[in-house]
């Protein structure tokens, strides 16, 4: 009986060892990647009006700032077929057979530094949408099937969107699916030019209003002041 006890104790210890070793081995195998935060997404789907921020309790006010690994605005724009297009995936993707939920979001939900890419992972402004590869595709080839005449067009410049010297700039882009301002404007992967100086003030739209470019102009009626005194 005693012997059995000892044996099973050892077996148990051994099993625990295997599990622990396996775990640490597995985590060693995982790509060197430091998630900043691991909160699970809650859900929303284009229903919310107004701004979304801090949805996943990321501490945008205290994001690391690492000048050596910052993207430029040009790099940021390069990944888009036109201004406002869903960016391509600029790196190879290990697993093609998934929609992205469990792989892409590992890095892009909370960001973090990837040694493999020597860069900070950009944080997705809409982590509730998990079919990532529905809109974002990697580029496996550099060739074209045939040439195109499509021109990328102009992307917005920075520093020209304020009304007064020093007044809060307006938002020059549509915010559809990009309502979480800070996920693009206050993370280590944010291009310097568009990084906000005051990420601790989380209600962005209190001061920054949209310029009219995401309003469907054709839908707005011309406002004509009625002259009531002349009404018949």
């Amino acid at each position: 009986m005693k012997r059995l006890g000892i044996i099973s104790l050892f077996t148990l210890l051994f099993a625990v060892f295997i599990i622990v070793w396996n775990y640490s081995y597995q985590s060693g195998l995982e790509e060197a990647y430091i998630p900043i935060n691991n909160n699970k997404p809650t859900s929303y789907f284009l229903e919310n009006e107004g701004m979304e921020y801090s949805k996943f309790d990321l501490d945008y006010a205290n994001m690391p700032f690492d000048e050596n690994h910052q993207r430029t605005l040009e790099e940021y724009y390069k990944n888009r077929a036109y201004y406002g297009a869903p960016p391509i995936i600029p790196h190879s993707v290990k697993e093609d057979l998934n929609i992205g939920r469990n792989s892409c979001l590992q890095c892009h939900q909370s960001g973090g530094f990837s040694k493999r890419f020597k860069a900070y992972a950009p944080i997705v402004p809409h982590p509730e949408m998990t079919n990532c590869k529905q809109c974002h595709v990697p580029q496996k080839s550099n060739s074209l099937f045939s040439e195109t005449n499509f021109k990328k067009g102009k992307f917005p410049e920075v520093g020209v969107n304020s009304a007064l010297n020093g007044s809060p700039p307006t938002i020059p882009h549509p915010i559809q699916m990009r309502k979480n301002c800070l996920s693009c404007h206050a993370t280590p992967s944010t291009p310097k030019k568009i990084r906000v100086t005051h990420p601790e003030r989380i209600d962005c739209m209190q001061c920054h209003v949209q310029s009219n470019n995401n309003i469907n102009i054709s839908e707005l009626e011309v406002f004509i002041r009625k002259n009531y005194t002349n009404e018949k």
């Binding site: 009304a163 030019k193 009219n212």
Partner: peptide, 29 residues
């Protein structure tokens, strides 16, 4: 932290025109 490039030497009037233009005037008038 760093200072961002949010300002340049554009004149007051132009900025004024831009903002109001972009937000309202373009569509209404």
């Amino acid at each position: 932290m760093y200072t961002s490039v949010l300002t340049d030497r554009r004149s007051f009037i132009k900025r004024m025109a831009l903002l109001s233009a972009m937000t309202a005037a373009a569509t209404m008038f």
